[in-house]
């Protein structure tokens, strides 16, 4: 890591989930800067703004009002400016269709929201510390879905 801290973004319409997310990073003591957005439109506005600091890892909830996770994913993948952002899908569901669709459209990892806070912390710390270049080059459908 060249920067002193890792920039992390989360787009999730659920307030509680945003709270768990930020709390987990607070407790993890990794040097991170976490920014949350309550829907896809808000996220894309931020990313497209010239002054914005682009995140290292972006967590995308799938089911969001206005602009959902898949739409955001497609938009980001279309723009070369966002090539360096690692995208983690962060969703309650883990249906085959969703996994397949996001994998095909270029997401880097799929995380099913855990139902235990300690588990959440474990997953997030792992995701943030993944060597993305290494992970992406060996990416396949089997290791796409993160298992704990």
């Amino acid at each position: 890591m060249t920067a002193d801290y890792i920039t992390i973004c989360l787009a999730d319409d659920d307030e509680d989930d945003r709270l768990f997310f930020t709390d987990a990073f607070d407790e993890l003591r990794i040097n991170t800067r976490v920014k949350t957005f309550k829907d896809g439109v808000e996220l894309m506005n931020y990313l497209n703004h010239a002054d914005s600091i682009l995140p290292n890892v972006l967590f995308l909830d799938l089911n969001m009002p206005k602009k959902n996770g898949v739409e955001c994913l497609l938009e980001i993948k279309k723009n070369v400016k966002f090539n360096d952002i690692a995208i983690a899908i962060y969703s309650t569901s883990s249906t085959e269709e969703h996994i397949e669709e996001t994998f095909v459209n270029g997401a880097n990892i799929y995380i099913k929201k855990p139902n235990d806070f300690e588990n959440l912390k474990k997953i997030l710390s792992e995701v943030v510390t993944i060597n993305w270049q290494y992970h992406t080059s060996g990416l396949n459908k089997d290791n796409f879905l993160m298992r704990m």
């Binding site: 509680d16 989930d17 768990f20 309650t92 855990p114 139902n115 235990d116 806070f117 300690e118 959440l120």
Partner: peptide, 13 residues
């Protein structure tokens, strides 16, 4: 699953 997950997470906290 969604509210259930939250209940579980809150309890774990």
């Amino acid at each position: 699953q969604e509210p259930l997950r939250k209940i579980e997470t809150f309890i774990s906290r």
